[in-house]
Amino acid sequence: MKNARIVAVVAALMAAAGFSGGAAAEDYPTRPISMVVPFAAGGPTDTVARLVAESMSRDLGQQILVENVGGAGGTLGASRVAKSDPDGYTLLLHHIGMATSAVLYRKLPYDTLNAFEYVGLVTEVPMTIVARSDFEPADLKGLIDYVKTNKDKVTLANAGVGAASHLCGMLFMSKIGEQLTTVPYKGTGPAMTDLVGKQVDFMCDQTTNTTNQIKGGKIKVYATTTKDRVASLPDVPTAAEAGLQDFEVGIWHGVYAPKGTPPEITAKLSAALQKALKDPLVVKRFADLGTAPSTEAEATPEGLKTKLTSEIERWRPVITAAGVYAD
């Protein structure tokens, strides 16, 4: 391990030395690549990034170092990458927030659709609608009825503006046409603690955060927000099965490079990403998290671009209607 690192650093020095000659795209990569994750280390997105980076490193023959640049709902890290040299040595792994921050933030330091090249989609983590274990409604239909008749009593938790749980909660409210009292937390950890501790009523969050609490019987689950049932939660109905149509939300993750990165390089990265997504270890870990790798067609620049563009348009009316902004 240590040796690999020394080799990597020496390689970095040599590559830096070769800068003036202009690093040719064919040789890419000749030094370690930095993958910026715009969230704190240890979170779900960081975990996805580290799993993929580890596998891609083996394919590319250079280490991909995960660099956590958290802050401002992920826009700080994204803006860092947008301003980096387009040489393929700085990448961004961001989730659905890439699309929603384009609407949540009225003044972003970068132009979401024009500041990046696309490498590909990585995975789409399903969401679950969960509640404290002694919450009265028995199923999703019951939950919707209960929420409508008791809207002055019910509390909906989320992990802060722009978080997955916030987005899903907004979508839920817009679907059932009610405004509920939301209780924001600083991150998923404290929100989940209070849900398990029965301080708040219900929440909609990623399987990465909820699966184990569900399996441990600490919280109640009503539905998943996917088209098909989630493999790790086979007994949980999808929202459509449970009576709420068109409620599909997933926290999709994509890899980006700064605008102007040569197409040969992004192609190489896409190929490495596709390979990583078939790596049995990555597949297995993703399955443990209750998610599946993106298909080969999705893990392409076009796949990601299509997703990003359509997601911005999808969330714009939801966020505008809720009237929440992060700045």
Binding site: V9, A12, A16, A17, F19, S20, P32, D85
Partner: peptide, 15 residues
């Protein structure tokens, strides 16, 4: 994960 020698110095290094 930080570069030891940054981009500003690149032109001064032997190619």
């Amino acid at each position: 994960p930080y570069a030891l020698v940054g981009p500003w110095l690149a032109p001064f290094l032997p190619g």
